[in-house]
């Protein structure tokens, strides 16, 4: 009975390998409480249906635009591929990866990330990269993001990175082992609470205002990628008053946009047009928009996407409508839940 033996052996070996995957999944942070932003990136892979607009960037995208508002009012299906302090090369490689799954009409990039020319912090890298599926884009993104003391293998086999979490394992690690609770839809991080802006910061003087070569290189790569795939690239700057956005920076982006025929919207200059009220539309004194702010920005953005890029209204697509109906329900349920929680406080 030779084949019995062989099968048995293969079985045992697969069991051993499976057990290591099990361990790995167990010790990886679940990001269901506290730093929930860590599970934003991975939600993309569960998506059904295509998106005409994809946002890439840091918290200035995933907290500032509401895909459901874009859908409800303009029939534009969109997705936000953003995470905390997402660096420009991470955004670029997410764009590259997105093209393996779908081809949107427009990529929207929030330009705040231009200020970072080098990797910043391992913890932030993790929030963006761990959620990505293994692909050549992910490998390239890791390479571009690693700090000096980091190692590629720690990303490919996260068990090596997170093994020391064994002593911090909590009930949540088991509870969300297979299924995480759904916290987001379309990459949007909803907050309904309000904390008005109290002071407007003044930017500290910088020795040098020009963006780094590395950052420029990736912006150029984004443009090339879009050109080659016949996709429009739009640049935006969310109306967050902090981190400070310098006029000198703004000029550089504007110049680049002009010379490359790109649309660049700096929402800081569009406060009146969008109707942003810093007393009601931010939940953390101006760093991020709350739901009300995000909906206002989306309502302003919708017509521009329609007119300038010809993004169509898809509300008569039955399949898409069904998908978005679920999302809309989730959206309002979450809104209601957050409002009750706030009222309870």
């Amino acid at each position: 009975m030779k084949w019995v033996k062989v099968t048995l052996r293969i079985g045992v070996v697969s069991l051993v390998i499976a057990s290591f995957f099990f361990l790995q999944r167990l010790v990886m942070p679940k990001y269901v409480n506290g730093i929930v932003e860590g599970s934003l990136i991975e939600t993309y892979y569960e998506e059904e249906g295509n998106h005409d607009v994809i946002f890439v960037g840091d918290c200035e995208v995933y907290e500032c635009f509401s895909p459901v508002a874009l859908w409800e009012e303009y029939g534009i299906p969109s997705f936000i591929r953003g995470s905390a302090q997402q660096l420009i090369w991470q955004s670029y490689y997410l764009m590259e990866e997105t093209l393996r799954y779908e081809k949107p009409e427009v990529f929207i990039f929030n330009v705040l990330a231009m200020k970072y020319n080098e990797p910043q912090k391992e913890a932030y890298n993790r929030l963006t990269l761990d959620g990505m599926r293994l692909s050549s884009a992910k490998i390239k993104s890791i390479k571009a993001s690693m700090m000096e003391d980091e190692n590629m293998i720690d990303y490919i086999i996260p068990l090596f990175r997170y093994h020391s979490r064994w002593s911090e394992l909590s009930f949540d690690d088991f509870r969300y082992f297979f299924n995480k609770k759904k916290l987001f839809h379309n990459g949007y991080y909803m907050r309904v609470d309000v904390r008005p802006v109290t002071t407007f910061p003044q930017g500290k003087k910088l020795p040098d205002y020009s963006f780094g070569d590395n950052a420029w290189g990736y912006l150029e790569k984004m443009k090339k990628l879009c050109d080659n795939n016949d996709i429009d690239l739009m640049l935006i700057k969310a109306p967050a008053i902090y981190p400070y956005w310098y006029d000198e920076w703004d000029e550089q982006i504007r110049e680049y946009a002009d010379s490359n025929d790109l649309i660049y919207l700096n929402f800081l200059d569009l406060i009146e047009e969008t109707g942003i009220d810093y007393n009601t539309d931010t939940y953390d004194t101006g760093l991020h928009m709350n739901l009300s702010g995000a909906e206002k920005l989306s309502r302003y953005l919708g017509p521009i996407l329609r007119e300038k890029y010809g993004v169509p209204d898809r509300r008569n697509d039955a399949e898409l409508s069904r998908i978005w109906e679920d999302k809309t329900t989730f959206y309002y349920e979450m809104k209601a839940a957050q409002e009750t929680e706030l009222a309870g406080k």
Partner: peptide
Amino acid sequence: LLFGAYGVGYDATQFIYNQF
């Protein structure tokens, strides 16, 4: 694999996030 003191992560304090 689990209990070895290796890798970046060993220093647990290194993995403290602050406000993004």
